[in-house]
Design a protein around this nucleic acid. Sequence first.
DNA 1: TCTGGGGTCCTAGGACCC
DNA 2: TCTGGGGTCCTAGGACCC
Length: 436
Amino acid sequence: MYALLDGNNFYVSCERVFRPSLRGRPVIVLSNNDGCAIARSNEAKALGIAMAEPWHQVRQRLGDAGVVALSANFTLYGDMSSRMMSLAAGLGPAQEIYSIDECFVDLGGLRGDLRARAQRLRERIHQWIGVPSCVGIAPTKTLAKLANHIAKDAERRPGHSYPAGLAGVCDLGTLPPSDLDALLALTDVGEVWGIGRRLGAQLREAGVANVLQLRALDPALARRRWSVVVERTVRELQGQPCVALDDQPGPRKEVSCTRAFGVAVDTLAPLEEAVSEYASRAAFKLREDGSAAAQVLTFIHTNPFRRWEKQYSRAATVPLRRPSAETGPIVQAALRGLRQVWKPGFRIHKAGVILLDLQDAAVQQGELALEAEPGGRPRERLAQALDQINDRWGRGTLQVASAGLGGEARSWTMKQQWRTPHYTTSWDDLPVAHAG
DNA sequence: TCTGGGGTCCTAGGACCC
DNA sequence: TCTGGGGTCCTAGGACCC
């Protein structure tokens, strides 16, 4: 048996903890560059704001409907997430943190009333963290995701053709089969974990429009007609676990840092700054992971939404002489890649650096010249010193000069007009409570 | 004017090997 | 009626997730 716990409208809920005036109002959180809505309060959903809808469209459509838009504050959400996850871990013997706002918990071997346990967890998270959440319980992960969706929907729209008692926590295992079938028939096939826009359309085309119909498919047919992924999904809906709990995720296979620019760029110099910056951020993530990369991929492309402009998109992969997590060689490789793909005459909209072919930094092959240097491995110590200084004095205290020196020169940096403070991770941003 | 970022997995096809 | 067979590795692209 699995539980899936998911924070409701997570980013918006995090913001509301520190700005109670946002409660009851339509609030959305925007992606980087203040591009599109990536989280919506229930009030915003009720206004018809779609997931990933561009902010400029929302504004155009709704005018001044009182929608509050905030820039994403991932530092805040990440910290709130780890607090929520540590509470959720108490629900069962093993936990898989699946994303910033949701986790699976293995409920195997637990006695007693699972619903009541889950309710207590929700209450505790609400009281201690301030974030509302819902729990789905079922024999497979796919069904648990579905149960969570039902628990959320039942809570958000009380009385909306759901059996009583599903709001907040939904345990599919305890439902009478006829109730379960009725529930699945009400649920669109696109709500199923693993069925996206494309597959959803293909399934509907084939007459499979709701979850009851998807569950009724022959797994072999699902594989023949679609793929092994769809077959697994069908089996999971039928109650046969095909996706195990992954509570010890392996090391990442790639690390990237990619961004759209605040304004398009048509010369090489600002691209070199941006790529230097992205490469050093990616190298930092690599060091946090204890990994080293063997290849560095750099890409640039124009804005695909501006169809009337000349389009250009290129990527280049540059191998490193030996696997590394050091800022210097990685930035140099990324810049070499950039010079391979750079071509004048285009308005470049986005660039990125992806570190590939990752391996454990600890098992790197030694090198004669390096080992022989007095004082151990000076390059490693340089990287350590860099990270320690930036950790103590703030990100960006020390950086590679090729990333530019800030101010007006860095016109390419992303837009972030409405970001709230780092309430929980920065002393300077600590909220202050006033009496009276 | 304004349309995100960071991941994973699967499949097909080509290159190459003996 | 016919172009060998069987295998691996790599890459690009598609689809999905949040």
